[in-house]
């Protein structure tokens, strides 16, 4: 129990105290009026030469007493009703506040007056509305996170699917595909289908990761860089440098790393200018693993929503490794620096 709660006065005691004060004031007024009334009457009679015999005095005393009593009773009633009404008006304030909260304005807080049960009630209502607002905000946050995850994963499914469709169309257009081309096709379909399956599993499992430990993670990086080169070398001039990435041990979710590189490939294919080389640098150091990708931007390139989704997807994956993704963009150039720290 808080200090304030311990010192809390009971409303009934407050009302009793109020009654006592009003009664005491009325009593003082009553006696004051009796002495004052008799004094005024005697003064008036003396000044006007009116004799006061016993009967007249008796009648006068009775009259003064009755009037004093009546005035004191009215005085007590008015004083008590006004002061008591002020206490009760707080109940009206609380009811009004509850109506406002019920109307959906969860930011409203009831004013706290006094230190009794009504104050405790107002504090409790404020606490409940704060808690509900916090719960609703958390729910909204979780819902937004879930939707963002679904959007990102859906976007990432599109990249391997696009590869399968493109290669299928290419082979369908060819009259006589060789056995090697068919073998490469099946290999690609198998790899990309595996990627789609992994991403679908993440979607169904609510974002569960499959982290593996690599004694020499440089081999994984080399594989991914190789796939990056294979996807882009026909259309772009590439400058790839992984010399600053020494052999190192680390834990990775392979599908996540693949998604990073797929998104980089996808963005280069859509928005990079062909005239200038596309750069990719991978290095590891104290900050962890850093992947830098830079390219010139096509003139009049309209960056669709999928571009933002791709970068968002990269950022979310980097955050899983305690890192981040920094984008530096101008009209002519694009650069992204991805840092993975907790390996």
């Amino acid at each position: 129990m808080t200090e304030k709660a311990k010192r809390r006065r009971k409303l009934s005691y407050e009302i009793l105290g109020l009654f006592a004060v009003c009664f005491a004031a009325a009593l003082v007024l009553f006696f004051f009026l009796i002495f004052f009334g008799i004094g005024v009457a005697e003064e008036y009679c003396w000044e006007n030469g009116i004799p006061l015999d016993e009967e007249a005095l008796y009648r006068l005393d009775g009259f003064v007493f009755s009037v004093s009593l009546a005035v004191s009773v009215i005085f007590f009633a008015v004083l008590f009703i006004v002061l008591f009404g002020e206490r009760l008006a707080y109940i009206g304030t609380i009811i009004k506040g509850v109506d406002i909260l019920r109307g959906g304005e969860m930011g409203y807080r009831l004013p706290l007056e006094g230190n009794n049960e009504l104050t405790a009630l107002a504090e409790a209502i404020n606490y409940l509305s704060e808690t509900e607002a916090a719960v609703k905000a958390r729910e909204r946050g979780l819902k937004e996170e879930k939707e963002a995850l679904i959007r990102a994963l859906s976007h990432d499914i599109r990249t391997p699917l696009t590869s399968i469709i493109a290669y299928t169309e290419l082979l369908s257009a060819k009259e006589n595909a060789t056995a090697q081309e068919m073998s490469e096709y099946f290999s690609l379909v198998e790899k990309k289908a595996g990627q789609i399956k992994s991403i679908t599993e993440i979607l169904l499992d609510g974002g569960k990761r499959n982290v593996e430990h690599f004694e020499n993670a440089r081999l994984l990086i080399e594989q991914l860089v190789c796939e990056f080169e294979e996807a882009l070398e026909e259309s772009f001039t590439l400058k790839v440098d992984i010399s600053a990435c020494a052999a190192f041990a680390g834990s990775f979710d392979v599908q996540e790393m693949r998604r990073i590189f797929d998104n980089l490939i996808s963005n280069v294919q859509k928005y990079a200018a062909h005239e200038k080389p596309v750069e990719l640098t991978v290095e590891n150091g104290e900050r962890g693993l850093t992947v830098r990708q830079k390219n010139a931007v096509k003139k009049n390139a309209h960056q669709a929503q999928s571009y933002k989704m791709g970068l968002y997807s990269i950022l979310r994956i980097a955050q899983n490794y305690g890192g981040g993704a920094e984008v530096r963009q101008s009209e002519d150039e694009f650069e992204i620096i991805i840092t993975l720290s907790n390996l």
């Binding site: 004052f36 009457a41 009679c45 004093s68 005035v71 005085f75």
Partner: peptide, 30 residues
Amino acid sequence: LDLLVVVSMGIIAATFLSLMLMFLLKNQKA
């Protein structure tokens, strides 16, 4: 005389009442 007594008592009671309420009420408007 009766009227004098009643009026003067009324003035005193009104004085006492308004002074008490002016100092005891918490509501600023009142």
